[in-house]
Simulated assay, not measured.
Amino acid sequence: MAILALPKLKFLAFTLIFMARLCCYTGYAQVVPGQMVAKALLCLNNKIIYSGCDEAYRLTQSGNLNVPPEATELFCNGPCLAETRLALSCINDVISDFLFYNKATVRDINYALSAGCSSTRQRGDFNVARYINGETSSASSLPNLIGFYALALFIWWWILLL
């Protein structure tokens, strides 16, 4: 009987350690070194990318587009829109899941650009915060998977004990 209990105890210990590691996990699935963040932020200060857009209307490191409604035509029909999209592409090429200080992603800012320069009633509204939906990256969905896998392991462990 003791011989049969030993593998079950080993499995129980393994399961508990595995669940503890999963449940105690915090942070993002991918760690981004500081040099990569600095390189991505250089895209916003690149004189080749941002050469024709007025500095007041440029995308900031905080993730804001400070375009007043009266400057919408100048922003959307001038060099600013294209240069901002180039800066976002540059950032995305450096770090695909980059987060600005306001937790906006490149996708969120692209949505704000599209809405602000659209022909709809949202034209002139470059409020990036409107497009930040709480889940700022795919890494934030990891804790939901952890709970699922922890429950599955617990059920599997319980079945093996019976």
Results as ranks from 00 to 15, higher is better:
20 A>G: 12
50 Y>T: 05
85 R>C: 03
27 G>D: 08
13 A>T: 02
133 N>H: 13
134 G>N: 09
20 A>M: 10
119 S>P: 04
102 N>G: 07
147 G>N: 09
160 L>R: 10
135 E>D: 15
15 T>K: 00
49 I>A: 03
128 V>D: 01
108 D>E: 09
16 L>F: 10
113 L>W: 00
140 S>H: 10
72 T>W: 11
128 V>P: 01
57 Y>V: 07
2 A>C: 14
50 Y>D: 10
108 D>K: 03
143 P>C: 01
141 S>R: 11
113 L>I: 00
89 S>R: 11
104 A>M: 06
161 L>Q: 08
49 I>Y: 03
46 N>Q: 05
97 D>R: 04
89 S>V: 06
20 A>N: 06
43 C>Y: 04
59 L>R: 01
14 F>K: 14
143 P>S: 02
41 L>E: 10
97 D>E: 10
41 L>W: 10
60 T>D: 04
36 M>R: 14
77 N>I: 05
99 L>C: 08
90 C>T: 03
118 S>A: 01
131 Y>F: 09
121 R>M: 14
73 E>H: 06
100 F>D: 01
148 F>A: 11
37 V>E: 07
156 W>H: 12
18 F>H: 13
80 C>M: 01
39 K>S: 12
132 I>D: 00
8 K>D: 11
125 D>M: 05
128 V>L: 06
151 L>E: 07
119 S>T: 11
49 I>N: 01
19 M>C: 13
83 E>A: 00
142 L>W: 08
103 K>D: 14
91 I>N: 09
13 A>S: 09
69 P>A: 09
30 Q>Y: 14
137 S>W: 02
158 W>C: 13
47 K>E: 13
33 P>N: 12
159 I>E: 00
12 L>D: 00
25 Y>W: 15
155 I>W: 01
80 C>K: 05
102 N>W: 02
69 P>C: 01
28 Y>M: 15
63 G>L: 03
142 L>S: 07
12 L>T: 10
22 L>C: 08
152 A>D: 08
160 L>H: 11
160 L>N: 13
127 N>A: 01
101 Y>S: 15
152 A>R: 11
42 L>R: 14
98 F>R: 04
11 F>I: 05
14 F>W: 14
84 T>E: 05
123 R>G: 05
120 T>Y: 03
88 L>S: 02
125 D>R: 01
138 S>L: 14
39 K>Y: 06
44 L>N: 04
162 L>Y: 13
161 L>I: 10
134 G>L: 06
108 D>V: 02
122 Q>N: 09
47 K>T: 11
71 A>L: 00
39 K>R: 11
83 E>P: 03
132 I>N: 03
40 A>H: 05
